[in-house]
């Protein structure tokens, strides 16, 4: 499968370890992710007011690039695209949905963009986790050469992968996609009752103590459930749960720091890929001592 891939800004900087590991893991599964040319920032949040079309221009512009790729034969999945970042996924899928349902919005945005080609409203936005689930977790299991035996993982979903219900990729109240994936990789999966609780998102900019409070709850609940590490698919969740452990430790001296993995890093590790693909050095809390203690490195 050769599919247009939308990275998003943070995957080129703080979330490079998500991008690199996911591209390599997807390749192992036969999914070639082709970066969309001239993509722009999606806006990260879907604009929620009825009259605010301006903020949908950015995601629609990216959808148009996918449509162009579908027409020029550079991919073999017409009108489909894949994302890795949960926020980009949510914004792009929400915008795609709005303009495909609302012809008047589509006409307005097209006439505003005033480009050679109109966006036709047909692009389907997928998250890599969905594509993997649809391939079947058995296929994932087949590629595992280094099973993550003995590693206790608490999947964290956050908001943008699950909600609203018509956008989310799994049951918004009882998601299992992470559990299924990490079990296929051979890990011990524990359930974190805070797996769907918001990490505080953008408040990390204007109120980091609020984010540290939420992060403390999410991480300690995972630890109480027996988790040694948690996982995410979002560079903002990753920043809030990983980098902000500095602030959590300052507020709670007894807090024991724990690694936060991108789902794709664990896939790359289990698929036997190298350190360059796993990019563990990009994580704030170094996960390598834990992995070494489990003989996984």
């Amino acid at each position: 499968m050769k599919i247009p891939y939308y990275p998003g800004c943070s995957l080129k900087t703080t979330g490079k370890n998500l991008e690199v590991s996911a591209i390599a893991a997807a390749k192992t599964l036969g999914i070639e992710m082709v970066e969309i040319p001239k993509w722009n920032c999606c806006g990260t949040v879907f604009s929620l007011t009825e009259d605010d079309l301006m903020h949908h221009v950015a995601p629609v512009r990216n959808l148009l690039r996918v449509q162009e790729m579908s027409g020029n034969g550079s991919v073999d999945t017409p009108n489909k695209m894949v994302t890795l970042c949960s926020m980009c996924f949510n914004t792009m899928k929400s915008a795609a949905g709005r303009v495909s349902r609302n012809a008047e919005d589509l006409v307005k945005i097209n006439s505003f963009m005033n480009l050679e080609e109109d966006y036709k409203g047909k692009v389907q936005v997928l998250h890599l986790l969905e594509i993997i689930r649809d391939m079947g977790f058995d296929k994932v299991k087949e590629k595992v050469s280094r099973p993550l035996n003995g590693l206790s993982v608490a999947p964290y979903y956050g908001c943008m992968l699950l909600r609203p219900a018509d956008i989310g990729i799994d049951d918004p109240e009882d998601p299992t996609i992470g559990k299924d994936l990490f079990e296929a990789l051979g890990a011990d999966v524990v359930d974190n009752p805070y797996k769907k609780v918001c990490c505080g998102a953008f408040h990390t900019v204007n109120d980091k103590s609020l984010v540290a409070d939420l992060g403390y709850e999410i991480l300690t609940r995972a630890q109480k459930a027996g988790g040694e590490a948690i996982t995410t698919s979002c560079p903002l969740c990753a920043f809030n749960l990983d980098n902000r452990q500095k602030e959590i430790s300052a507020a709670h001296p007894e807090f024991k720091q724990m690694p936060v993995f991108y789902f794709s890093q664990l896939m790359a590790l289990a698929f036997g890929l190298g350190e360059e693909e796993c990019m563990f050095e990009g994580n704030y809390v170094d996960p390598r001592p834990l992995l070494k203690s489990k003989n996984l490195l």
């Binding site: 800004c9 703080t14 920032c41 949040v45 998102a201 900019v205 979002c234 560079p235 920043f239």
Partner: peptide, 18 residues
């Protein structure tokens, strides 16, 4: 110091919302 660490995703969403 914060600007040197914050991912773009945090800034873009904060500026959109606030």
């Amino acid at each position: 110091e914060e600007m040197r660490q914050l991912p773009q995703i945090a800034l873009v969403s904060a500026f959109r919302k606030l």
